[in-house]
Each structure stands twice: as C-alpha cells, then as structure tokens.
Computed example of a mutant assay.
Amino acid sequence: MLETSQLQTLVAVARAESFSRAAEDLNVTQSAISQSVKNLENKIGVKAFKRTGKKVVLTQEGERLYELAQNFLGEMDEALTEIKDNKDEMKGRIRIGTLTGVGKSWLAQELLNFALKEDGLSIHISLGFQEDLIRSFEENKIDFLVLPEGAVPKSGEKLLLSEEAVTLVFPKGNPFNITKNTSLEELTRMPTVLFEQGDKLYQNWCLAKYGKKPKKVNTRFSVNSHGNMLQAVKNGLGVAVVPNHVLKRWHYKDDIETLGKAFEVSHDRFYIVYHKDATDLVRIRKTIEMLTKEQNPFL
C-alpha cells in the first residue's frame, strides 16, 4: 500500500522536475525525497522517473500514477477542508437513533422541522429496538440516541431530556361518565383499551392515582400501538392510558377527553446519549440544544 507522503513526493518531483527543488517545496531534505521515491518504486516494481539532461521526468508508468495521485490528493484536500468547515458550521450529516414509538410520535417531527430550518444538514433517523440501536451507537454508526432510562447503555455521555407523562383518555362527550371522583372499582368495570395484557402504563397510572394496581380489567380491545389505541377510544370502545406526547401529536386529539393536568402521571425519564467528543461538532451540539429547548417535551 502506497503512503500519502509518497504520493505527495511523486507529485512534487513531477512538477518541479528536480529532486532538490521538490525538497525545497516540501521543506524536507533532498535525501528524504530520494528515499521516498526509491521506496515508492520498490512498491510498484517499476521506475517512476527517468533523467533527461538536468531534469527528472516521469516514465510512462509514472505519468499514470501521477494522474491518480493528483486526483487522490485533490479529493483528500477537498474532503479535509469540508470536514474542517463542517466542524464549526451547521453542515454535514447527523445520525440519530430512538425507539419506534418515540420516533414516530415526537422525534421525527421535531427533526423534520429542524431540517427545514437548517438546509446544510443531512439528517438520518434510525427507529428500532434498543439492542440494535445501542450496537450501532457503540460502533459509531449513530451520533446520539434518545432512549428511556431503562434502555440507556453504559457507554457514552448522558443528558436528561425529560420525563414522560401519561394520562387517562376517554371518548368525547364522556359516555362512561368519568369524573375526578371515579373510584378504581368503577374504572375497572368500564370497557378498557390496552396496549397489551398487563399494560404497564395503565397499571402504573392506577397505582399513582389510587395507591394500588387493579386486580382485574374489563379489556374490550388490545393493540400494541398507542395511535391505534387512541383510534379505538375515539370510536367509543373504551378508556385508555397513553403517553402525553402521543396524544398531543395525534390528528384527532380534539375527539378525545382527559381529566386534566392533575390526572397526568410521570412514567419514565428519557435521556440523550452521545459520544464524549461529539459536542465539539457544532451540528451535534446545536441539535441537542434544539431537542432540549422545551423543558418537558413529553409532558
């Protein structure tokens, strides 16, 4: 494998047509130039230069290598300049990973709006399972993650983003006559829409509001999608407990009712996880600042 310094020497000698002048251009000794050319020629197995009078000129093989070296070094200079400029400007690529639910209901929309304002950015969002996301992050294929506390990896720097709140929702018009004084026993007799059997959000909401979890729930409909749960509630199938950030961004949220702020319950903390030196890049630092601009985006 040829070294970049050898290609630089080849180009310098070809342009100067002299080992001594190439040494001056590169600010090295003539012997260093001679040794670099010798090592290059040993690697490629042919002569790159020949002497014509007082000049040193390229052989046919050297000319071909010279063209390739010029292109390579030119592209490398452009890339290094771009990387240096992008470090201090809102330019370049940002790669973000999060869970599918949070990505669809909040993060993707936030980053869509951000991309519209920052036309120098190329934003890539990965939605998936925490194990796959963490692996990609540790392999430096993702710049930062947005994950709930229980999914945060040991690697990386961590920044608290917010706490997720959940709330009880019911169809518009309150056909089940839910009030602030509704008891747990009354609630569990009502038809209920769950994320899954043993729905943790529903169970934890009841624990926070009533001091205990229900032993039995009148499950009318179960689907592992908060959007579809809200659709079921809208259609009158029952009551449900869903994350606030999902409800806020749901197209038909005006067709759903809640018991207000006092009946919202904190459920989970979300963190931004990033590589230690990532915030040296302006685009990463500004993106994190944008995501944390609201004190509680999930409430």
Rank of each mutant, 00 (worst) to 15 (best):
V217T: 05
P148K: 00
K38C: 11
S20L: 12
F114P: 00
N177T: 14
G120T: 04
G92D: 05
F195Q: 07
K209L: 08
L107F: 01
K180R: 12
T52C: 06
K261T: 13
G227E: 14
R269D: 13
H267R: 04
E82Q: 12
I44T: 08
L107K: 00
V46L: 08
T292R: 14
N204E: 13
R189L: 03
N42W: 02
Y210C: 09
P191I: 08
R51D: 06
N204A: 07
N177A: 10
Q6M: 12
M190I: 04
V246Q: 09
G45P: 15
Y210V: 03
N244A: 01
L26I: 13
G238Y: 04
T167D: 08
A23T: 04
I142A: 04
V102E: 07
F137C: 09
G150W: 00
V37A: 01
K117D: 07
E24A: 15
K158G: 01
G45D: 05
N296T: 12
M76E: 11
L281F: 11
S155H: 03
N113Q: 12
R269S: 11
L187C: 07
K276P: 15
E164N: 10
N181F: 14
Y66Q: 04
E3P: 11
L107C: 09
F129C: 15
E163Y: 05
K215R: 11
T179L: 04
D254H: 12
K234A: 00
N235P: 15
L112W: 05
K154I: 11
G101P: 01
T167F: 12
C206V: 02
N86E: 08
G128N: 11
G74T: 10
T4K: 12
G97H: 00
R15D: 14
V152S: 01
A22W: 02
E138S: 13
G150R: 00
V11Q: 03
E67C: 12
T29G: 09
S266P: 12
V166F: 03
E289C: 06
A108P: 00
F114A: 02
E164D: 14
N235T: 12
A32C: 12
A115H: 06
Y252K: 05
E17L: 09
Y210R: 00
G97Q: 01
L207R: 06
L2F: 07
N224P: 09
Q8R: 13
E24L: 09
F114Y: 11
R93C: 10
E196R: 08
A151L: 03
Q6T: 03
K212E: 15
V146S: 03
A108F: 00
F195V: 05
